[in-house]
Nucleic acid binder design. Structure first.
Length: 614
RNA sequence: GGCUUCGUAGCUCAAUUGGAUAGAGCAUCUGACUACGGAUCAGAAGGUUGCAGGUUCGAAUCCUGCCGAAGUCACCA
């Protein structure tokens, strides 16, 4: 048993013997690292215990202290106010290091037979991926790795929105103006190629709309429908969707195409599958660059009609109700929500219909215990409704559904808007950070002797670490302000800073002629920097479970930085290879090895690779 | 307007889930390579944790009320 744990259970026995009637439990006794200037490595919080015992904290602290002094004469204790500080001895630190050396971090947690689905990415096939997708993807990926580490069987899925009016817009634009061009003929990545036609459609539509505004019809429209005090500009901005749906030629053509698609028209279907193929190929390349993949991909074109049946079957039993116009609803007022439409009056489905059906077929396929939807917080309400619907249906998976809601990514100038062209493209960003890393590498001379291919690989790892770490270090719940300038930073609280700690250790280990041994019995005293490292290393397991259980990879990211920081400090203050004694050398080498192992492991969970040199 | 979330250094983020003197990085200023990699280290400066109450041994964290920001409340996705 670990010494800390032993102290904890002895405090419990002391309390039990003194206050037999109070029912103390081990969980009442909180021991945390001491971060103050006061003497002591760890601190026992006396206040909660004093409250339960009905005793003055100072007195109780002294009582516990004298009890522990007898049991652990080799340790130091100091009771200050409501805190009891403990000074560990060198043996404790050496035992900690040996325990760490013996740990297989891959197997810290026992396997369990539970299955978790993680849904992330989920793009539309009319535009390339952007910065928002990157945050989503990095979150999904690290949650997958975290839960996997906790012993779950994790299935990575995405739902591709590959149908609907938006998709038809780019198809129509290509048909009208594409002149047979392809991604191959233009040497453009498929998703960007199709995205250009989506943008082209929008601009052609805007042209048409502007023309319309100058016609008699347009002017009449403004005069008849404008609200009081509304300017022409304001009116037409607001009226745009109505114009698209009721008057626009392009709008009519796009809707006609959607209708043909739904009827299964062979020409439209083949155009559709060709263009979607281009986009998906482009996505695949971006996923590869981001280092992520999926076990199962669902296409909305195959699932959008699901769910309808479920609602129709549950009208008679009163879960859903039908209005006179034929639309189907559910009343969620008792859950603090509103009435929600689940089927249109014409019998077609809405988004929530499809999501309900999706939850169902996935359950049939995987019998999952839990399903995590990684989706931005603008859809919080949607998921509340969805989960309540599943509960109302008494679905066996209803209690396992979880929305991992994350804040949207904004630029220093505000929210990204495709109309204003302020969307940060994923591929561009990736290229930029790698470029920046390459530029930086060429300014120093560490890689100069390596083959070009190897240099490229290292620069890629460093650039991607900068980008990924910059995003994943922020608490998912919070919206984040993404400054492109800061994202390519390679110094300070960044991914490359952490990689550099690993690189330094790798470099030290390379210089070593013999194996690292664990002969450090005679090493003392353990210095403060070493203690600091050992405390952090011992906390690793707790950090992992904390991050996984709160669905928050940023916990792990920040831990990794703090560990790297402690290492840099240690490295600066103490010589490893030229340590004062063989035992000191072997202690520091062992310590460094564990630091490298944990840094690499933690970063791996976050989807960040470690180079040996940089 | 209803509901939800968020306001911490000039900027971007932390704070062991209610614990001791609120910590990092960037930017600014100063110092450290004849040390195992300076993408590093040490230091200075920077704060009424939006405001006002309350709860208690103790509050950035919990409660109430204001102020401010964002999201959402579609027969959109």
């Amino acid at each position: 048993m670990n010494l800390l744990h032993k102290i904890q259970s002895n405090i419990l026995s002391i309390l039990k013997s003194m206050y037999a009637d109070k029912a103390f439990a081990e969980s009442d006794i909180q021991i945390s690292p001491n971060k103050t200037q006061n003497k002591g490595d760890y601190t026992v919080l006396i206040f909660p215990l004093a409250k339960k015992a009905g005793k003055n904290p100072t007195e109780l602290g002294n009582e516990i202290q004298s009890g522990l002094k007898n049991l652990f004469p080799e340790l130091g204790f100091e009771a200050i106010g409501g805190f009891l500080n403990i000074v560990m001895n060198d043996q404790f630190w050496k035992d900690s290091l040996e325990a760490l050396l013996a740990t297989d971090f891959q197997k810290m947690f026992p396997e369990n037979d539970k299955t978790v689905l993680v849904e992330y990415a989920s793009p539309n096939t009319n535009k390339p991926l952007h910065l928002g997708h990157i945050r989503n993807i990095l979150l999904g990926w690290s949650i997958y790795r975290l839960l996997q580490r906790l012993g779950y069987n994790v299935v990575k899925t995405q739902v591709v929105n590959d149908r609907g009016i938006a998709i038809c817009k780019s198809m129509l634009a290509w048909q009208k103006y594409g002149e047979g061009r392809t991604p191959a003929s233009e040497h453009v990545k498929g998703d960007h190629f199709v995205g250009e036609y989506y943008v082209l459609f929008e601009s052609k539509f805007q042209e048409e709309y502007k023309q319309f505004q100058l016609t008699e019809e347009g002017k009449d429209c403004f005069d008849q429908r404008k609200k009081q005090e509304q300017s022409e500009k304001e009116f037409f901005t607001e009226y745009k969707n109505q114009y698209f749906n009721n008057q626009s030629t392009l709008g009519r053509e796009a809707r006609a195409m959607l209708l043909k698609w739904e009827e299964g028209d062979p020409a439209v279907r083949s155009l559709w599958s060709m263009m979607n193929g281009w986009v998906l190929e482009g996505f695949e390349q971006t996923y590869t660059n981001l280092g992520v993949d999926f076990d199962k991909v669902y296409f909305e074109s195959e699932t959008y009609m699901l769910g309808k049946q479920i609602f129709l079957e549950n009208i008679d039993n009163g879960i859903f109700y039908k209005k006179t116009d034929g639309s189907v609803w559910i009343n969620l007022e008792n859950q603090g929500l509103y009435h929600k439409l689940v089927l249109r009056s014409d019998g077609t489905s809405v988004y929530i219909t499809q999501d309900t059906g999706m939850a169902d077929i996935r359950y049939e396929e995987y019998q999952y215990d839990s399903c995590i939807y990684v989706v931005a917080d603008e859809q919080d309400y949607h998921f509340k409704v969805l989960f309540e619907i599943c509960k109302a249906l008494k679905a066996p998976y209803a209690d396992g559904l979880h929305h991992l809601s994350y804040g949207m990514v904004e630029l220093p100038s505000g929210r990204m808007k495709s109309r204003e062209g302020t969307v940060v493209d994923a591929d561009d960003l990736i290229a930029e950070v790698i470029n920046e890393a390459t530029k930086n590498a060429s300014e120093r001379n560490e890689l100069i002797d390596l083959p070009q291919e190897e240099q490229n690989e290292i620069n890629r790892k460093v650039g991607m670490a900068a980008l990924k770490y910059h995003i994943i270090k922020v608490n998912p719940k919070k919206k984040m302000i993404f400054d492109p300038k800061e994202s390519v930073d390679l110094q300070g609280h960044t991914g490359p800073y952490i990689q550099n700690a690993f690189v330094r250790i790798s470099s030290v280990l390379r210089k070593l002629e013999s194996e690292v041994t664990t002969d450090f019995i005679a090493y003392n005293p353990i210095n403060e920097d070493e203690k600091e490292l050992l405390m952090q290393l011992s906390a690793y397991k707790g950090v992992i479970s904390n991050a996984a259980e709160s669905y928050d990879p940023s916990v792990l990211a920040n831990y990794t930085y703090s560990l790297a920081k402690s290492f840099h400090k240690f490295y600066h203050n103490h010589s490893i290879l030229k340590a004062e004694s063989p035992d000191a050398k072997s202690f520091r080498l062992s310590l460094s090895k564990v630091v490298a192992t944990i840094l690499a492991d933690a970063m791996h969970i976050l989807g960040i690779e470690m180079p040996e040199k940089m």
